[in-house]
Design a protein around this nucleic acid. Structure first.
Lengths: 212, 212
DNA sequence: CTTGCTTCCAAACGTATGTTTGAAACGTAT
DNA sequence: ATACGTTTCAAACATACGTTTGGAAGCAAG
């Protein structure tokens, strides 16, 4: 497995740069030079830039989705009744805690997710759906039990809205932190924002469906 | 003012392509060839690609913000009491109706906005804030009156969350429409989604603030 | 018809990108 | 020590990009 580090150094650096500048705007040269490895290393170890991007996501999402699946197992085994608070609470705690070593890691993850999702063409979106769609659907089933009065289609969209709120906010965290600091003189971490997000999402998801 | 069309043909084409593929992924050659104008026309008429992007936004946002300001004037003149529904209703109707000629135009606009906002570096975000920040703040004031129990800071974040839900959802409309079609056998327009968005946003914005 | 100004156009420029190459360096097992 | 598979490296490759250029085309006023 070669010099202990090259692959991981590439992943570490790429992760940060992708989140900072976006995929297209981050060159392999920027990654490799900052990582202190040769330019050709990316193509040697990953095959292409596209494959590197996927690898970065995999390193993030696999632990997350495994942990989420486990939590859902627990929930089902214990027979805990589903409520929006418990379901969303689990997700948010996991998102913030899957990589406890680095508190900024969660922010990076959401920035990446935002980048991926806003890639209009959507290679990445397909990839994510293909690899992590199962857990996502399980989550949706539990949510449906938590708000049985919301029709499935309506709930589907509300989950999308929630995703949007989370990813969009955390992916723009830096600028927003700046605003928050000047306007309210407060520093904010991803955890702070998540705490504020939860009531908002719960309120939105269980809102009354208009008669129409 | 030259051949009637070059500038507008560039703007029309750029608008669509930017929304479809993103800014970095859309080359000037793609724009000019599809628009049927010479490659050099962009730099001649706009100065640079960056300036073209700003021009595309301006064409969208200026009518919108003018109309919004007018609506807020009305509201204040009539002395209508502020409620989340009225405020958000105004915004959503305007976003969908500022360019009534083309129903798909709203979707394009939100895709553009999503692209702009997720540009991590944020040149565009700054530009938008600088040019349209005033109207945005007025809007926020009215919202605050509508939910006086929500602390200003909390409201600020909830507005961000709402922005995320809107932009993110509509910017990914195409893929989501695909899912909706297969899973629920339903076609959706931007207007449909907006109708579903409103209760979600209202529910989120006026949710109880946890004691903490 | 000439002049002056704007707009258009084909071609080229310089640069940056992802990728490939072939040899050197390395580590390991024979 | 030698041979072998893996990994690193500097260099080059091909391509795509945004931008610039110099002149042609168009057009209005003198």
């Amino acid at each position: 497995m070669a010099q202990p580090g090259t692959v991981d150094r590439i992943l570490d650096t790429a992760e940060v740069l992708f989140a900072q500048k976006g995929f297209a705007e981050t060159s392999l040269r920027a990654i490799t030079s900052k990582a202190g490895v040769n330019l050709a290393a990316v193509n040697y170890h990953f095959g292409s830039k596209e494959a590197l991007i996927q690898a970065v996501f995999e390193r993030f999402l696999t632990p997350f989705s495994v942990a989420l699946a486990a939590k859902l197992d627990e929930l089902e085994a214990a027979g805990t009744p589903d409520t929006p608070d418990t379901i969303l609470g689990i997700v948010s705690r996991l998102a913030l805690g899957t990589h406890p070593q680095d508190p900024q890691r969660a922010a990076i993850f959401f920035r990446l997710a935002g980048q991926a999702y806003s890639q209009p063409q959507g290679h990445l979106r397909q990839y994510l759906n293909r690899h992590y769609g199962d857990v996502f659907e399980r989550l949706q089933v539990h949510l449906q039990r938590a708000v049985p009065d919301v029709p499935p289609m309506e709930l589907f969209w509300r989950v999308q809205f929630s995703l949007g709120a989370v990813i969009f906010t955390l992916s723009g965290l830096e600028s927003l932190q700046g605003i928050s600091k000047t306007d309210f003189n407060l520093d904010l971490t991803a955890a702070d924002i998540t705490r504020r997000l939860l009531p908002f999402l719960v309120g939105g998801i269980q809102a009354d469906v208009p008669a129409q």
